[in-house]
Design a protein around this nucleic acid. Structure first.
Lengths: 198, 198, 198, 198
DNA sequence: ACGTAAGCGAGACGGTACGTCGCGTCTTACC
DNA sequence: GGTAAGACGCGACGTACCGTCTCGCTTACGT
């Protein structure tokens, strides 16, 4: 009895309506009324659940990140040993399952706040992996770790964004992971086609 | 008759006001009235120059990109030969000079449209460099070029964003370039502290 | 089984709350919630007894008028003979006993509907007295009877309203009656201080 | 240039719309939107002129009272000498010209506030006449002057209210005045048909 | 140099959306 | 069966900005 059945139904309807409509017309162009109409809910009811549409989006994103975290937790341990690519694989699969939501978050809709939430979450995982590696493998980063982390997350997010926006049958997740792993192990110089530097 | 002196002054005032205010309170929170008040200009006058605040921001961004392009053109040729890091260096210097504007663009203010303009411009330059290398050095990319480009630009933008948001005396541009070059040549595996892969 | 004890209690609480609150803040400014809170009753309960706050007020007023009628019936017969002032005296005493309710009714609270109910009741009594006089004393009104009735009731209500709004120890009811009687018998010309007209 | 032509037009339209609609459906039943639609004016425009519909009604009433005052001022002086009935005559004529407005004010629409304004204005004039008489004719009121004033104004307002609500060709103003004068000079006892008291 | 076309400020206006409040209906659980 | 608690659809509130529109005043340009 933790939560009224009606409440659960109403919230679900609002969340779904939000995602649909942002895909169709973009977050800024939406009014609260648009959302409530699509969800078939009174406008006042919206406000009894969320302060404004930003909060709704934030909650939706938070739920998504919680879900992602559930999927990631079992595999980050392993990856801390070396470069397995398992976390990225999980993330790609999650993105495949929740494609629309990933799209709108990664597009920076909603003033980029949800994207920032996402990026921060990735950065947190990245930091965790880094710490794990340093401890287990007794290695020291050779370039500023902050910069390294930023570069990594930026790369990941950019690729992810590109992947979820592909409309034609997209490249399989496993192949993306393979490429990213190659890129991480050998660098862009090699990836571009040059041979190992002198 | 190129442009009335009054017009030039008004536009300048509006552009500056926009940047200041976005830094202070964020793009979405601004009203046209806020901008015109800060610029000490009538609201009607604003509308005789720009359709809305999005257009103003777009123009400001376009001007910035044109300036960046001027600085980049002389050096992209050289970098097409190998990995010189010169274009990134120029960009960092430009960002140092126009710090506030870079910040708000990279934060994704204004619905991320300016950021998309910026990213696209970077992608265009990247594509140019790629083409140049393929032709001059007779090399073939070893991973999907689209993915490679996305990853690269994502990395660049993420690092740039981090760099312009630093408040303490930031790391010198030359050092950032050195690190990025190392990262590109040897990969993240090496950068993390591991030795060359098996 | 005339009426559940709980029901009686609830209605009483609502009526009292209404009167108190209208005195404090005025009818229009009240919400149903205000009333139910003061009465310590659930909002839904209110609606199971009254359609809305207007109906509650109407019922309260109707009860008051029924009570007034009970007090008036024994004395209107006598007054039909001449001008005894007994009905007005009874009304003033009733108003003294139910001061707050009289105040809010006479102020025209609730869109003036209760006041109209009150005025109509007075007019009915007045008509009754008139009819009685015409029959018993064989007199004919010297001015339009409709106008005469309106003037009379208007005078009564205005004086009553003034009397119940006095906060200091008000003029005794008997004295008010005496004055009104003088006024009725001799007219305002005399009351103002002039001597009998030419 | 004291006042923008557009402003004058807008206000006029709102005032007229108010009166029309109150006659049709009553003040309480009106929404601001109803008024602005009838006036063919934007709802926001309404709020740039009046705080709410009560203020609009108050202004309309105030204007009416100012007009009435203009008509009354020349004649109250004369009436201070004796009982000429001229002020009442003027008021009746004014009521004939502005019938709808008088109706809604006298009905107590708008929480009775406009009616109170009207009553107060009458009381002010009455007090003025009283003072004039006391001074010029060296007479002293024979009953409490406060009560006398209330009774008088109440009578006036009641008769006025009845008169403006008549739909059939109403009794001529002059005749009403004659009757009220008779009533004032000789009292209700006489008017009812009885002969002068012993 | 100066008259005139422009740029400009002020602000009224019709709109749209906001976030809030109160309505009257309803469902659920308690006593 | 009367009640309390509270979700819900609805409609109005008063506010904030939007983009458009006069209306006069000021200012810089072109002849």
């Amino acid at each position: 009895m933790a939560e009224d059945r009606r409440v659960r139904k109403t919230r679900k309807a609002l969340r779904d309506a939000l995602v649909e409509l942002v895909i169709e017309r973009g977050f800024t162009a939406l009014s609260v009324e648009d959302i409530t109409q699509r969800a078939d809910v009174g406008r006042a009811t919206f406000y009894s659940h969320f302060r404004d549409k930003d909060e709704l989006f934030a909650r939706v994103t938070a739920d998504l990140l919680a879900e992602l975290d559930d999927r990631l937790r079992p595999v980050v341990q392993d990856s801390a040993v070396g470069f397995t690519g398992k976390p990225i694989l999980q993330m790609l699969r999650h993105a495949r399952d929740e494609r629309d939501l990933y799209r709108i978050v990664l597009r920076g809709e909603g003033d980029g706040k949800p994207l920032r939430m996402f990026t921060d979450a990735c950065a947190r995982v990245a930091a965790q992996e880094f710490r794990g590696r340093s401890e287990r493998n007794a290695v020291e980063p050779r370039i500023d770790p902050e910069l390294l982390a930023r570069a990594w997350v930026g790369e990941q997010v950019a690729v992810l964004q590109w992947w979820v926006e592909q409309d034609a049958p997209p490249m399989p997740a496993e192949e993306v992971v393979r490429m990213l792993l190659d890129l991480a192990l050998r660098g862009r110089y090699w990836a571009t086609g040059f041979d190992t530097p002198a």
